[in-house]
Write a protein that binds this DNA or RNA. Structure first.
Lengths: 192, 192
DNA sequence: GACAAAGACTACTATCATTAGCTTTAAAAG
DNA sequence: CTTTTAAAGCTAATGATAGTAGTCTTTGTC
């Protein structure tokens, strides 16, 4: 194989993620990415199908890491379903705060296609299992949707600086998640 | 006043909003906007300070309409705080579904600056009042943050097509909001 | 009828993503 | 050790975009 390559696809994706996280999505360009890899922009197209394709790969990697953070949080967490979900919520929020730009990119379509639904489904089913321990199976999808919405929404509002009225945001977050789960518990105890 | 203008700032903002809603933010450009106004792109800069400035004005208009939708929903709603907030949540979601592109634009910074905090504060205080009827004053900010996060998060996940596993999303949304409020009610009844 | 100025236009710059086609290079073949 | 070759990088170009500078047009006013 003549002419050994100076980069590979994996390194491009990794560097793209790092660049986006460091400088923000707005500052990201194929040209800047190429420069940071010691190469010229057109060379990237040998490994990547285009900007959108690349960002999709970045998003997949972001989701992988997010779900890895879930796994880690759940191994250390207690047994009770509600406590596990609270731990999950805090791990989720911590991840988003540690990776604000790539998190936001992964969850705001804005033209960029999202990764395969199949993969996401595999990642989310265990969470629904835990939720079923609180609400019962039939309600678990609805309850999980709401929980993810609450977490995602809270984090997005924080990242977009829309919760500027002071107070302890971590505490507010924890209280809100706890209230949400309590509400579902109450319902499942008392019936609709 | 010689040479009567063919557009004014207000019309530009209105048309920009309409264009974004019709074609999506990605398809929006100063040039496309100018064409739709029967004018060339550079002419717009006489009325608008630049793309970001224009989009900020669009966002302000979007927020005004969102809060107008709140007001309307609250006038028709019952007396009990929880019922009022449920009505508010559904009005919020309906607005976002009716204006998906401009809603998303208004709530995802991505370089575009957001409108004045002062205005937003005025819009949000009445909601906190209602929430205080459920949780009491000290917890009302935390509880409101969580509620807005839940609603915003749910809507964002819907708009970004991340809730694709079937079921009645409106029902899941309503159940989740109800559970959330129930959780806070329970807390305030039983203490921390 | 001449003029002043508001307002729109053309022409230009700079930045992107992306494509086409040429050049370089190091490994493999002789 | 030279020649071949194909992968990989590069330059140059295209077309879209935001934004700027300076010119031309229109029209109310004198």
């Amino acid at each position: 194989m003549p002419y050994p390559s100076q980069v590979d696809r994996e390194e491009i994706v990794r560097q793209a993620r790092a660049l986006i996280e460091r400088e923000g999505e707005a500052a990201f360009s194929m040209s800047a990415l190429a420069t940071s890899l010691g190469v010229k922009a057109p060379s990237l197209y040998r490994y990547v199908d285009g900007r959108d394709n690349l960002l999709q790969a970045v998003n997949l990697e972001t989701l992988r890491r997010l779900f890895a953070a879930f796994d880690e949080a759940l191994t250390d967490a207690p047994e009770e379903p509600a406590a596990r979900l609270v731990a999950l919520a805090h791990a989720y929020r911590a991840f988003a705060h540690a990776n604000p730009c790539s998190y936001e990119l992964a969850f705001t379509s804005s033209g960029v296609r999202r990764p395969d639904e199949e993969i996401l489904l595999q990642m989310v089913l265990p969470l629904q299992e835990i939720m079923a321990g609180i609400t019962g199976k039939p309600l678990s999808l609805a309850a999980l949707r709401g929980l993810l919405a609450l977490i995602h929404g809270f984090v997005m509002l924080e990242l977009n600086e829309q919760l500027q009225r002071g107070g302890d945001l971590r505490s507010d977050f924890g209280q809100s998640v706890a209230a949400y789960l309590r509400g579902w518990q109450k319902r499942s105890r008392e019936g609709p």
